[in-house]
Design a protein around this nucleic acid. Structure first.
Length: 565
RNA sequence: UGGGGCGUGGCCAAGUGGUAAGGCGACGGACUCUGGAUCCGUUAUUCGGUGGUUCGAAUCCAUCCGCCCCAGCCA
């Protein structure tokens, strides 16, 4: 089945799967899963994992599960479960009827723990956290056996049962795997399988006071669900021997764990701790602040799921730590929105234009195409009148070299309408331009003249009498540096917060068709960028978030440091 | 200085012994009723370094260097 994304070469994971299929492992089945812990909102990094797992299931005609890894009730909340499901659906990913929770398996996991005890492969340990750390040894020194390591099976069974019944205090006992305290892999030094934790679980309530650890829960959950390829990130590579040990010790169906490298993104942070800090301490307005790299933030910013998916596909998968360029993400939205977004005219920083030779009370309704990239998008009518707004930045008294826009005496085209020429800039006491007096050429109706004369600049405009007042939020990167963690000793990533990451313009003038929006509508504001109506929009007072600017070769040229001749 | 990984252009990334894909970016130029879009060029004599094997090495061997992860009763 061909994918709907651009064809990218296969990655090392698909190569491994190809080989498994070739040798008939797993009976040729492919079954993946995405196992989020519901302790935060999904971000672009999770989107990569979802895309990978779901994409593989789709490409191999396999299945994809969503399973919440909810084994730590002290950090997990229903709000996160809900947001995660909404975000995954938004990404266009479907787990069909396969929504699972590790907590669904607590009963089975408990049974299996007793099986391990009976096989002499697990024991109850009375060491407290500090003692256990001491016994564990260090990276270069082996650990020592716990004094409780050789308890009888009967005693272990009894103790574990009593742990479950709540006879012991939190932290006083653990169930540990009996593996090897001298293993060079620290994860194999009798890892904890169960801990006592009196916390109300968002799904099982107070049914349990012991909870399984990730290493014990994850592989068995994969096994229960018949997962074939359990794809996770590099930091779990050291855990694979433990993943394998549990499954083998239990003698149950054994999936293959495969690790890949997560990617960072320039100008943002993806660590859960930092994201939560940004939200809790109000550096942003919430998880869905359009500056956040969360899926909900990208959505509110105006990104499309197609663009996010394409971004993931273009980056590919590897085992090398890397930092993806934010511009790559922006290129993906631009490409997608260029094809789909309806073009509209919105003046962000308006200045009044009065066309002296245009009849006072006349209004013409001009045809404008909605999307030159897509004729099927149709046309709409735009009112044109004697008084208009244009972008203040589009007028320069002293035009620099290469300037195409308005300046005294220079003729420009108003998109879809007429050629105009400015003859006077009216200023206030402070010397600020408040009005541009212009004349128009009636023969230029529709944007061209019989004599075919060329005008270099084409400006967007809005009829003053028909304009809709709008708020436009211009977003930039949340951080000033490609790597926000790049700070001098003693510094903090928050030192790199960009104070100009949000600039709200409340005097914008939009064409009349934009008066009533619900939020979520995406447009291209001609010559400026892609914008998305925000849910803060009210009737007659739309609010827009800038998704991304249009490429601006003039801005680049003009701002180029002198040198250029 | 224990164990596990990783090092290909500014950023991602193909490549698995036969003489360095692609995308993003950057830089030129064409075209244009969005300085948008589109188009067309340019952008690694070289694959972390050094030796070696081979007719031939980014790919095999040796050695060195650099970066990441692991000492939670987090995931």
């Amino acid at each position: 089945m061909p994918t709907d994304e651009n064809a990218v070469s296969k990655d090392f994971i698909r190569d491994l799967i190809d080989e498994d299929i070739r040798i008939g492992r797993f009976g040729g089945r492919v079954h993946t899963r995405f196992p989020p812990e519901p302790n935060g909102y999904l971000h672009i990094g999770h989107a990569m994992s979802i895309n990978l797992n779901f994409g593989i299931a789709r490409d191999y005609n396999g299945k994809f599960n969503l399973r919440f890894d909810d084994t730590n009730p002290t950090k997990e909340e229903q709000e996160y479960v809900d947001s995660i499901m909404a975000d995954i659906h938004w990404l266009g990913v479907d787990w069909e009827d396969r929504l699972f929770f590790a907590s669904d398996y607590f009963g089975q996991l408990y049974e299996w723990a007793m099986q391990l005890i009976k096989a002499g492969k697990a024991y109850v340990c009375d060491l407290n956290a500090d003692e256990m750390r001491e016994y564990r040894g260090t990276l270069t020194e082996p650990g020592r056996d716990s004094p409780y390591r050789s308890r009888s099976i009967e005693e272990n069974l009894d103790l574990f049962e009593r742990m479950r019944k709540g006879e012991f205090a939190d932290g006083s006992h653990t169930l540990r795997a009996k593996i090897d305290m001298t293993s060079p892999n620290v994860n194999l030094r009798d890892p904890v399988l169960y801990r006592i934790l009196r916390a109300t679980h968002h799904r099982t309530g107070d049914t349990w006071c012991i909870y399984p650890m990730y290493d014990y829960a994850h592989g068995q959950s994969d096994s229960i669900e018949g997962i074939t390829h359990s794809i996770c990130t590099l930091e779990f590579e050291d855990h694979r021997p433990l993943y394998d040990w549990c499954l083998d010790a239990l003698g149950i169906y054994h999936p293959q764990q495969i690790e890949f490298a997560r990617k960072a993104l320039t100008y943002t942070v993806l660590s859960k701790r930092k994201l939560i800090e940004l939200v809790r301490n109000n550096y942003v307005t919430g998880w869905d602040d359009p500056r956040m790299p969360t899926v909900s933030g990208l959505r509110r910013r105006g990104y499309t799921p197609e663009a996010v998916r394409e971004f993931c596909a273009r980056l590919g998968v590897s085992k090398a730590n890397s930092i993806a360029d934010f511009q790559q993400l922006e290129a993906c939205v631009r490409e997608d929105l260029n094809k789909r977004a309806v073009r509209v005219m919105v003046v962000l920083k308006p200045v009044k234009v009065v066309i002296d030779n245009y009849p006072e009370d006349q209004v013409e309704w001009i045809d404008a195409d909605n999307n030159p990239e897509d004729p099927a998008a149709g046309t709409r009518k735009l009112p044109f009148s004697r008084e208009l707004y244009v972008e203040a930045d589009d007028y320069r008294e002293d035009a620099p070299k290469g300037w195409f826009r308005m300046s005294p005496g220079r003729e420009v085209r108003l998109k879809h309408a007429y050629y105009i020429k400015c003859h006077t800039a009216v200023k206030n006491d402070k010397g600020e331009i408040v009005e541009l007096r212009c004349t128009y050429d009636p023969a230029s109706a529709g944007g061209s003249t019989p004599d075919n004369r060329k005008v270099q600049g084409t400006l967007h405009w809005v009829s003053a009498a028909h304009a809709v007042n709008a708020v436009v939020r211009l977003y930039e990167q949340l951080f000033n540096k490609p790597n926000p963690d790049d700070v001098p000793p003693g510094g903090d990533y928050k030192d790199n917060l960009n104070p100009n990451s949000l600039i709200a313009l409340d005097k914008a003038k939009a064409e009349p068709g934009l008066a009533n929006l619900n939020g979520g509508e995406r447009y291209q504001f001609m010559r400026q960028g892609y914008f998305c109506a925000d849910t803060d929009s009210q009737s007659g007072k739309p609010v827009f978030n800038r998704t991304v600017t249009l490429k601006d070769t003039w801005g680049k040229t003009e701002n180029k440091p002198a040198a250029k001749k």
